[in-house]
Design a protein around this nucleic acid. Structure first.
Lengths: 189, 189
DNA sequence: ATTATCTATAGATCTATAGATAATGC
DNA sequence: ATTATCTATAGATCTATAGATAATGC
Protein backbone atom coordinates (compact mmCIF):
# COMPACT_ATOMS: atom_id res chain seq x y z
CA UNK A 1 0.00 0.00 0.00
CA UNK A 2 1.12 3.55 -0.62
CA UNK A 3 2.07 5.94 2.14
CA UNK A 4 -1.20 7.76 2.82
CA UNK A 5 0.49 10.51 4.77
CA UNK A 6 2.75 11.49 1.87
CA UNK A 7 -0.22 11.38 -0.50
CA UNK A 8 -2.12 13.80 1.73
CA UNK A 9 0.88 16.06 2.17
CA UNK A 10 1.21 16.29 -1.61
CA UNK A 11 -2.42 17.43 -1.75
CA UNK A 12 -1.89 20.00 1.00
CA UNK A 13 1.24 21.48 -0.58
CA UNK A 14 -0.23 21.40 -4.08
CA UNK A 15 -3.37 23.32 -3.16
CA UNK A 16 -1.22 26.01 -1.50
CA UNK A 17 0.92 26.36 -4.61
CA UNK A 18 -2.05 26.25 -7.02
CA UNK A 19 -3.69 28.98 -4.89
CA UNK A 20 -0.82 31.42 -5.17
CA UNK A 21 0.47 30.70 -8.68
CA UNK A 22 -2.32 28.89 -10.51
CA UNK A 23 -2.34 25.29 -11.71
CA UNK A 24 -0.40 25.77 -14.96
CA UNK A 25 2.30 27.94 -13.42
CA UNK A 26 3.14 25.40 -10.73
CA UNK A 27 5.68 22.72 -11.69
CA UNK A 28 5.61 19.20 -10.28
CA UNK A 29 9.13 19.95 -9.07
CA UNK A 30 7.79 22.78 -6.91
CA UNK A 31 5.21 20.47 -5.35
CA UNK A 32 7.84 17.78 -4.75
CA UNK A 33 10.22 20.29 -3.14
CA UNK A 34 7.45 21.56 -0.85
CA UNK A 35 6.75 17.98 0.24
CA UNK A 36 10.45 17.21 0.59
CA UNK A 37 10.80 14.54 -2.10
CA UNK A 38 11.98 14.41 -5.73
CA UNK A 39 9.51 15.03 -8.56
CA UNK A 40 9.44 11.46 -9.93
CA UNK A 41 8.34 10.17 -6.51
CA UNK A 42 5.06 12.07 -6.90
CA UNK A 43 4.07 9.66 -9.64
CA UNK A 44 3.92 6.76 -7.15
CA UNK A 45 1.01 8.62 -5.49
CA UNK A 46 -0.70 10.31 -8.41
CA UNK A 47 -0.94 9.31 -12.06
CA UNK A 48 0.03 12.82 -13.21
CA UNK A 49 -0.17 16.50 -12.31
CA UNK A 50 -3.82 16.74 -13.35
CA UNK A 51 -4.71 13.86 -11.01
CA UNK A 52 -3.40 15.92 -8.07
CA UNK A 53 -5.66 18.79 -9.08
CA UNK A 54 -8.65 16.48 -9.52
CA UNK A 55 -8.01 14.93 -6.10
CA UNK A 56 -8.11 18.40 -4.56
CA UNK A 57 -11.54 18.98 -6.07
CA UNK A 58 -12.82 15.60 -4.88
CA UNK A 59 -11.36 16.11 -1.42
CA UNK A 60 -13.08 19.50 -1.09
CA UNK A 61 -16.36 18.05 -2.36
CA UNK A 62 -16.17 15.42 0.38
CA UNK A 63 -15.24 17.96 3.08
CA UNK A 64 -18.10 20.21 1.99
CA UNK A 65 -20.56 17.35 2.35
CA UNK A 66 -19.29 16.67 5.88
CA UNK A 67 -19.39 20.39 6.77
CA UNK A 68 -23.01 20.68 5.57
CA UNK A 69 -23.97 17.54 7.51
CA UNK A 70 -22.29 18.81 10.70
CA UNK A 71 -24.24 22.08 10.51
CA UNK A 72 -27.41 20.04 9.87
CA UNK A 73 -28.08 22.30 6.93
CA UNK A 74 -30.14 21.05 4.03
CA UNK A 75 -28.13 20.21 0.94
CA UNK A 76 -29.48 20.83 -2.56
CA UNK A 77 -31.59 23.73 -3.79
CA UNK A 78 -34.64 25.41 -2.31
CA UNK A 79 -36.83 23.88 -4.96
CA UNK A 80 -35.77 20.41 -3.85
CA UNK A 81 -36.58 20.85 -0.18
CA UNK A 82 -38.75 23.88 0.57
CA UNK A 83 -39.75 22.64 4.04
CA UNK A 84 -36.20 22.35 5.30
CA UNK A 85 -35.46 25.83 3.98
CA UNK A 86 -38.53 27.32 5.60
CA UNK A 87 -37.38 26.00 8.98
CA UNK A 88 -34.05 27.83 8.70
CA UNK A 89 -34.45 31.06 10.57
CA UNK A 90 -32.44 34.26 10.17
CA UNK A 91 -30.78 33.29 13.43
CA UNK A 92 -29.50 30.11 11.83
CA UNK A 93 -28.33 32.08 8.81
CA UNK A 94 -26.17 34.32 10.99
CA UNK A 95 -24.64 31.39 12.85
CA UNK A 96 -24.08 29.52 9.62
CA UNK A 97 -22.52 32.55 7.94
CA UNK A 98 -20.04 33.04 10.78
CA UNK A 99 -19.08 29.39 10.55
CA UNK A 100 -18.71 29.62 6.80
CA UNK A 101 -16.50 32.70 6.98
CA UNK A 102 -14.27 31.16 9.62
CA UNK A 103 -14.09 27.98 7.58
CA UNK A 104 -13.05 29.72 4.33
CA UNK A 105 -10.52 31.93 6.11
CA UNK A 106 -9.05 29.91 8.99
CA UNK A 107 -9.11 26.33 7.73
CA UNK A 108 -5.80 25.96 5.89
CA UNK A 109 -7.10 23.70 3.13
CA UNK A 110 -10.37 25.62 2.61
CA UNK A 111 -8.52 28.94 2.52
CA UNK A 112 -6.12 27.69 -0.14
CA UNK A 113 -8.97 26.06 -2.04
CA UNK A 114 -10.91 29.34 -2.04
CA UNK A 115 -7.91 31.18 -3.49
CA UNK A 116 -7.32 28.40 -6.00
CA UNK A 117 -10.91 28.66 -7.24
CA UNK A 118 -10.52 32.43 -7.43
CA UNK A 119 -7.48 32.23 -9.68
CA UNK A 120 -8.80 29.32 -11.77
CA UNK A 121 -12.38 30.56 -12.20
CA UNK A 122 -11.92 31.87 -15.75
CA UNK A 123 -9.96 28.86 -17.01
CA UNK A 124 -12.94 26.60 -17.74
CA UNK A 125 -16.67 26.24 -17.37
CA UNK A 126 -16.13 23.66 -14.64
CA UNK A 127 -13.96 25.99 -12.54
CA UNK A 128 -16.33 28.89 -13.13
CA UNK A 129 -19.22 26.72 -11.98
CA UNK A 130 -17.39 25.56 -8.84
CA UNK A 131 -16.31 29.10 -7.96
CA UNK A 132 -19.87 30.36 -8.08
CA UNK A 133 -21.25 27.29 -6.34
CA UNK A 134 -18.91 27.67 -3.35
CA UNK A 135 -18.33 31.43 -3.18
CA UNK A 136 -20.34 33.49 -5.66
CA UNK A 137 -23.89 33.10 -6.89
CA UNK A 138 -24.33 29.90 -4.83
CA UNK A 139 -24.27 31.48 -1.35
CA UNK A 140 -25.95 34.62 -2.71
CA UNK A 141 -28.92 32.69 -4.07
CA UNK A 142 -29.09 30.60 -0.92
CA UNK A 143 -29.44 33.79 1.13
CA UNK A 144 -31.89 35.27 -1.38
CA UNK A 145 -34.16 32.26 -0.93
CA UNK A 146 -34.03 32.58 2.85
CA UNK A 147 -34.55 36.33 2.96
CA UNK A 148 -36.95 36.19 0.02
CA UNK A 149 -35.23 39.21 -1.51
CA UNK A 150 -32.40 39.50 -4.01
CA UNK A 151 -31.62 43.01 -2.81
CA UNK A 152 -31.46 42.02 0.86
CA UNK A 153 -29.30 39.05 -0.08
CA UNK A 154 -26.82 41.41 -1.77
CA UNK A 155 -26.70 43.55 1.37
CA UNK A 156 -26.17 40.44 3.50
CA UNK A 157 -23.68 38.47 1.43
CA UNK A 158 -21.94 41.26 -0.53
CA UNK A 159 -20.04 42.60 2.50
CA UNK A 160 -19.18 39.06 3.57
CA UNK A 161 -17.84 38.29 0.11
CA UNK A 162 -15.78 41.49 0.15
CA UNK A 163 -14.40 40.66 3.60
CA UNK A 164 -12.83 37.44 2.26
CA UNK A 165 -10.69 39.70 0.11
CA UNK A 166 -10.02 42.15 2.94
CA UNK A 167 -9.12 39.26 5.25
CA UNK A 168 -6.48 37.88 2.88
CA UNK A 169 -4.37 41.02 2.98
CA UNK A 170 -5.22 42.12 6.55
CA UNK A 171 -2.50 42.08 9.19
CA UNK A 172 -5.05 42.00 11.98
CA UNK A 173 -7.19 39.01 11.04
CA UNK A 174 -9.23 39.24 14.25
CA UNK A 175 -10.31 42.77 13.31
CA UNK A 176 -11.79 41.45 10.07
CA UNK A 177 -13.69 38.76 11.93
CA UNK A 178 -14.99 41.53 14.22
CA UNK A 179 -16.12 43.51 11.15
CA UNK A 180 -17.97 40.47 9.87
CA UNK A 181 -19.64 39.86 13.22
CA UNK A 182 -20.74 43.49 13.46
CA UNK A 183 -22.15 43.25 9.95
CA UNK A 184 -24.04 40.03 10.64
CA UNK A 185 -25.51 41.39 13.87
CA UNK A 186 -27.47 43.89 11.79
CA UNK A 187 -29.74 41.09 10.67
CA UNK A 188 -30.59 39.94 14.19
CA UNK A 189 -33.93 41.73 14.79
CA UNK B 1 8.82 53.24 -36.86
CA UNK B 2 7.00 50.18 -35.67
CA UNK B 3 3.39 49.50 -36.55
CA UNK B 4 1.55 51.04 -33.60
CA UNK B 5 -1.68 49.27 -34.42
CA UNK B 6 -0.10 45.83 -34.18
CA UNK B 7 1.56 46.79 -30.92
CA UNK B 8 -1.79 47.79 -29.46
CA UNK B 9 -3.52 44.68 -30.77
CA UNK B 10 -0.87 42.56 -29.05
CA UNK B 11 -1.71 44.33 -25.79
CA UNK B 12 -5.45 43.84 -26.29
CA UNK B 13 -5.17 40.14 -27.09
CA UNK B 14 -2.61 39.51 -24.36
CA UNK B 15 -4.73 41.02 -21.60
CA UNK B 16 -7.67 38.85 -22.69
CA UNK B 17 -5.53 35.72 -22.56
CA UNK B 18 -3.83 36.66 -19.27
CA UNK B 19 -7.32 37.25 -17.81
CA UNK B 20 -8.65 33.81 -18.62
CA UNK B 21 -5.53 31.68 -18.19
CA UNK B 22 -3.09 33.73 -16.12
CA UNK B 23 0.24 35.16 -17.23
CA UNK B 24 2.38 32.02 -16.83
CA UNK B 25 -0.10 29.71 -18.53
CA UNK B 26 -0.30 31.84 -21.68
CA UNK B 27 2.34 31.15 -24.33
CA UNK B 28 3.69 33.82 -26.65
CA UNK B 29 2.46 31.59 -29.45
CA UNK B 30 -1.12 31.94 -28.18
CA UNK B 31 -0.79 35.73 -28.14
CA UNK B 32 0.71 35.72 -31.65
CA UNK B 33 -2.07 33.46 -32.98
CA UNK B 34 -4.74 35.74 -31.47
CA UNK B 35 -3.13 38.72 -33.21
CA UNK B 36 -2.69 36.79 -36.45
CA UNK B 37 1.11 36.75 -36.65
CA UNK B 38 3.90 34.30 -35.80
CA UNK B 39 5.45 34.30 -32.34
CA UNK B 40 8.88 35.68 -33.30
CA UNK B 41 7.19 38.76 -34.80
CA UNK B 42 6.04 39.77 -31.32
CA UNK B 43 9.64 40.50 -30.40
CA UNK B 44 9.77 43.39 -32.88
CA UNK B 45 7.15 45.13 -30.69
CA UNK B 46 8.07 43.96 -27.19
CA UNK B 47 11.40 42.95 -25.72
CA UNK B 48 9.91 39.81 -24.19
CA UNK B 49 6.74 38.31 -22.70
CA UNK B 50 7.18 40.15 -19.42
CA UNK B 51 7.37 43.48 -21.30
CA UNK B 52 3.89 42.83 -22.70
CA UNK B 53 2.58 42.29 -19.18
CA UNK B 54 4.33 45.41 -17.91
CA UNK B 55 2.90 47.45 -20.77
CA UNK B 56 -0.59 46.32 -19.79
CA UNK B 57 -0.01 47.62 -16.26
CA UNK B 58 1.35 50.93 -17.54
CA UNK B 59 -1.48 51.31 -20.05
CA UNK B 60 -4.07 50.74 -17.32
CA UNK B 61 -2.32 53.19 -15.03
CA UNK B 62 -2.53 55.82 -17.76
CA UNK B 63 -6.19 55.04 -18.53
CA UNK B 64 -7.05 55.22 -14.84
CA UNK B 65 -5.47 58.65 -14.59
CA UNK B 66 -7.54 59.85 -17.56
CA UNK B 67 -10.70 58.28 -16.14
CA UNK B 68 -10.20 60.01 -12.78
CA UNK B 69 -9.53 63.32 -14.52
CA UNK B 70 -12.65 63.00 -16.69
CA UNK B 71 -14.80 62.38 -13.61
CA UNK B 72 -13.11 65.37 -11.98
CA UNK B 73 -12.50 63.18 -8.96
CA UNK B 74 -9.65 63.90 -6.63
CA UNK B 75 -6.73 61.53 -6.99
CA UNK B 76 -4.66 60.48 -4.00
CA UNK B 77 -5.80 59.67 -0.51
CA UNK B 78 -8.17 61.45 1.85
CA UNK B 79 -5.25 62.53 3.99
CA UNK B 80 -3.72 64.30 1.02
CA UNK B 81 -6.77 66.35 0.07
CA UNK B 82 -9.48 66.47 2.73
CA UNK B 83 -11.21 69.49 1.19
CA UNK B 84 -11.80 67.88 -2.18
CA UNK B 85 -13.16 64.80 -0.44
CA UNK B 86 -15.47 66.80 1.77
CA UNK B 87 -16.98 68.41 -1.33
CA UNK B 88 -17.91 65.02 -2.79
CA UNK B 89 -21.50 64.36 -1.91
CA UNK B 90 -23.30 61.03 -1.67
CA UNK B 91 -24.94 61.97 -4.95
CA UNK B 92 -21.54 62.13 -6.59
CA UNK B 93 -20.61 58.80 -5.04
CA UNK B 94 -23.63 57.12 -6.62
CA UNK B 95 -22.93 58.58 -10.05
CA UNK B 96 -19.25 57.72 -9.76
CA UNK B 97 -20.02 54.16 -8.63
CA UNK B 98 -22.32 53.55 -11.59
CA UNK B 99 -19.63 54.82 -13.93
CA UNK B 100 -17.00 52.66 -12.26
CA UNK B 101 -19.14 49.54 -12.47
CA UNK B 102 -19.91 50.13 -16.12
CA UNK B 103 -16.25 50.81 -16.80
CA UNK B 104 -15.01 47.59 -15.13
CA UNK B 105 -17.70 45.48 -16.79
CA UNK B 106 -18.37 46.98 -20.23
CA UNK B 107 -15.02 48.40 -21.28
CA UNK B 108 -13.27 45.50 -22.97
CA UNK B 109 -9.77 46.34 -21.75
CA UNK B 110 -10.84 47.25 -18.21
CA UNK B 111 -12.95 44.10 -17.92
CA UNK B 112 -10.03 41.90 -18.96
CA UNK B 113 -7.67 43.84 -16.73
CA UNK B 114 -9.99 43.34 -13.75
CA UNK B 115 -10.05 39.58 -14.36
CA UNK B 116 -6.29 39.53 -14.88
CA UNK B 117 -5.72 41.24 -11.53
CA UNK B 118 -8.12 38.79 -9.93
CA UNK B 119 -6.20 35.75 -11.15
CA UNK B 120 -2.75 37.28 -10.55
CA UNK B 121 -3.44 38.83 -7.12
CA UNK B 122 -1.72 36.09 -5.09
CA UNK B 123 1.34 35.83 -7.34
CA UNK B 124 3.25 38.75 -5.90
CA UNK B 125 3.07 41.68 -3.54
CA UNK B 126 2.85 44.05 -6.48
CA UNK B 127 -0.17 42.27 -7.99
CA UNK B 128 -1.83 42.00 -4.59
CA UNK B 129 -1.32 45.72 -4.08
CA UNK B 130 -2.75 46.61 -7.49
CA UNK B 131 -5.76 44.31 -7.03
CA UNK B 132 -6.68 46.00 -3.76
CA UNK B 133 -5.93 49.47 -5.07
CA UNK B 134 -8.27 49.08 -8.06
CA UNK B 135 -10.92 46.68 -6.78
CA UNK B 136 -10.61 45.71 -3.12
CA UNK B 137 -9.62 47.75 -0.10
CA UNK B 138 -8.97 50.82 -2.30
CA UNK B 139 -12.57 51.56 -3.30
CA UNK B 140 -13.79 50.29 0.09
CA UNK B 141 -11.63 52.75 2.01
CA UNK B 142 -12.52 55.53 -0.40
CA UNK B 143 -16.22 54.96 0.37
CA UNK B 144 -15.50 54.60 4.09
CA UNK B 145 -13.89 58.05 4.10
CA UNK B 146 -16.86 59.57 2.29
CA UNK B 147 -19.54 57.88 4.41
CA UNK B 148 -17.38 58.19 7.52
CA UNK B 149 -18.23 54.62 8.45
CA UNK B 150 -16.47 51.35 7.76
CA UNK B 151 -19.71 49.42 8.27
CA UNK B 152 -21.69 51.61 5.89
CA UNK B 153 -18.90 51.34 3.36
CA UNK B 154 -19.14 47.55 3.50
CA UNK B 155 -22.89 47.77 2.87
CA UNK B 156 -22.30 50.17 -0.02
CA UNK B 157 -19.33 48.59 -1.77
CA UNK B 158 -19.73 44.91 -0.76
CA UNK B 159 -22.76 44.32 -2.99
CA UNK B 160 -21.09 46.21 -5.82
CA UNK B 161 -17.97 44.07 -5.47
CA UNK B 162 -20.08 40.90 -5.47
CA UNK B 163 -21.98 42.07 -8.56
CA UNK B 164 -18.74 42.14 -10.60
CA UNK B 165 -18.60 38.42 -10.02
CA UNK B 166 -22.31 37.94 -10.73
CA UNK B 167 -21.98 40.03 -13.88
CA UNK B 168 -19.19 37.88 -15.30
CA UNK B 169 -21.29 34.74 -15.42
CA UNK B 170 -24.69 36.39 -16.02
CA UNK B 171 -26.45 35.83 -19.33
CA UNK B 172 -28.58 38.92 -18.87
CA UNK B 173 -25.95 41.60 -18.26
CA UNK B 174 -28.56 44.40 -18.24
CA UNK B 175 -30.32 42.71 -15.32
CA UNK B 176 -27.13 42.92 -13.27
CA UNK B 177 -26.75 46.60 -14.07
CA UNK B 178 -30.36 47.02 -12.92
CA UNK B 179 -29.52 45.23 -9.67
CA UNK B 180 -26.61 47.58 -9.12
CA UNK B 181 -28.72 50.66 -9.85
CA UNK B 182 -31.42 49.48 -7.43
CA UNK B 183 -28.76 48.91 -4.80
CA UNK B 184 -27.15 52.31 -5.28
CA UNK B 185 -30.53 54.12 -5.14
CA UNK B 186 -30.81 53.06 -1.48
CA UNK B 187 -28.17 55.63 -0.63
CA UNK B 188 -30.01 58.53 -2.29
CA UNK B 189 -31.77 60.09 0.70
C1' DA C 1 8.42 -9.41 -1.18
C1' DT C 2 6.59 -5.02 -1.70
C1' DT C 3 6.59 -0.23 -1.68
C1' DA C 4 8.84 4.34 -1.84
C1' DT C 5 12.33 6.79 -3.25
C1' DC C 6 16.20 8.05 -6.05
C1' DT C 7 19.16 9.23 -10.53
C1' DA C 8 19.13 9.63 -15.33
C1' DT C 9 16.86 10.90 -19.25
C1' DA C 10 13.53 10.83 -23.32
C1' DG C 11 10.27 13.64 -25.47
C1' DA C 12 7.56 17.57 -25.59
C1' DT C 13 7.07 22.14 -24.98
C1' DC C 14 8.27 27.14 -24.64
C1' DT C 15 11.06 31.56 -25.01
C1' DA C 16 13.89 34.06 -27.64
C1' DT C 17 17.38 34.82 -31.37
C1' DA C 18 19.49 34.57 -36.18
C1' DG C 19 19.10 35.37 -40.58
C1' DA C 20 16.21 35.45 -44.89
C1' DT C 21 12.28 37.53 -47.33
C1' DA C 22 8.47 40.62 -48.08
C1' DA C 23 6.35 45.11 -47.46
C1' DT C 24 6.55 50.10 -46.82
C1' DG C 25 8.32 54.86 -47.17
C1' DC C 26 11.68 58.28 -49.11
C1' DA D 1 16.57 52.16 -46.86
C1' DT D 2 13.90 50.69 -43.15
C1' DT D 3 10.63 48.05 -40.88
C1' DA D 4 7.76 43.89 -40.24
C1' DT D 5 7.27 39.49 -40.93
C1' DC D 6 8.65 34.82 -41.79
C1' DT D 7 11.26 30.02 -41.18
C1' DA D 8 14.52 27.53 -38.61
C1' DT D 9 16.42 26.51 -34.45
C1' DA D 10 19.29 26.88 -30.04
C1' DG D 11 18.82 26.49 -25.28
C1' DA D 12 16.11 26.12 -21.35
C1' DT D 13 12.49 24.19 -19.11
C1' DC D 14 8.93 20.78 -17.79
C1' DT D 15 6.29 16.24 -17.55
C1' DA D 16 6.63 11.68 -17.14
C1' DT D 17 9.00 7.08 -17.51
C1' DA D 18 12.76 3.50 -16.84
C1' DG D 19 15.42 1.20 -14.02
C1' DA D 20 18.36 1.06 -9.77
C1' DT D 21 18.53 1.38 -4.71
C1' DA D 22 16.83 1.87 -0.08
C1' DA D 23 13.19 1.15 3.32
C1' DT D 24 9.31 -1.44 5.21
C1' DG D 25 6.36 -5.43 6.31
C1' DC D 26 5.50 -10.36 6.32
Amino acid sequence: MENETTKQRILAEAVKLFASEGYEAVTVDQIAKAVGIKAPSLYKHYKNKRAIFDSILRFMEQRDGEQAAACSLPEGTAEDMPEAYAQSSTENLITFSKQQFRYWTEDAFASSFRKMLTVEQYRSGEMNSLYHQYLGAGPLNYVADLLESQEEALLFYGPMYLLYSVYDEAEDKAAVHALLDAHLERWRR
